[in-house]
Amino acid sequence: MNALEVKNLTKTFDKIIAVDNASFEVPEGSIFGLIGRNGAGKTTTIRMMMNIYIPDSGEVLLRGNKVDHQFKDKVGYLPEERGLYKKSKVMDILLYFAELKGKKGKDIHKKAEEYLERFELLDRKTAKIEDLSKGNQQKVQFISTILHDPEFIILDEPFSGLDPINTNLLKEIILDLKKQGKVIIFSTHLMDFAERMCDHIAMIDHGKVILKGRLSDIKAKYSQENISLNYEGDISFLNSHPLVDKVEDFGNTTGIRIKDASKTQELLKLLVDNKVKVKRFDANDITLHEIFISLAGKVEGEQLTAGVANV
């Protein structure tokens, strides 16, 4: 069962196509990753999913029905760049954001206090945002994202700029929410991170969805015909060999895509015969990063894996 279905979404700004006929499905209870480079169209897609932008064409279905503004009450959104009213007090801002989601009253007040206690901020509830440390401001922002008990949680580059403590805290919350059966949608350019957290993904590049589905299925499919290789010597002869489809440099490793998945042993023999010193030959592993590069190509100077240390 799909919680959300994105169907043929297209959005153009001033002749620039930000999202181009994008379709993907977000299953119930999944952690879903929307993956792509900066500027690939992730945020625009998310904004259309939340009904902030009206698509030029296409639609977003929430459990079979077109999304309307009521969907906004069911969503908790953590934008990439975070901000709160600096002059407002912690509790006031939490209650304001919850009230905008249609939740108010004693219950929500109590719940806010519970969250503040869990995040060790209860004693700061009447403090002004500007008087909190950056880390504590981030905590307040998390609470405001989930305080109204949303069914869907959309997190845009959630770990960027977080300190290690908050990174762990957020991971805990995400796993907690998954246990409660919430649908969690990430948008991120960090492939390693998506690989570890997500069970379904959609890969987006230049506004187009270039890959989608269950992560384990995707990896199984690509790993069979992709060999990850570390070596010493010259492998340039492979470029024109009939066995090989493509040779790609991923930085740390070299990826060799073969035309027939059953011919991996022949490739190994070929390398040995040609006096290449094989240090690692892995026919059962491919990273999302490698899949992405083989599909979308590498952009000069771009480090897709940068900044994942804390994940």
């Binding site: 939340m50 902030i52 503004h69 906004k72 009450d73 969503v75 959104y77 934008p79 760049e81 975070r82 901000g83 709160l84 009213y85 600096k86 954001f97 905008l100 989601k101 405001s144 959309i154």
Partner: peptide, 14 residues
């Protein structure tokens, strides 16, 4: 609201 990106959160609500 615009520069602090509060508006993104607000627009996800209203």
């Amino acid at each position: 609201e615009k520069t602090s990106k509060i508006v993104e959160v607000l627009l996800s609500s209203c």
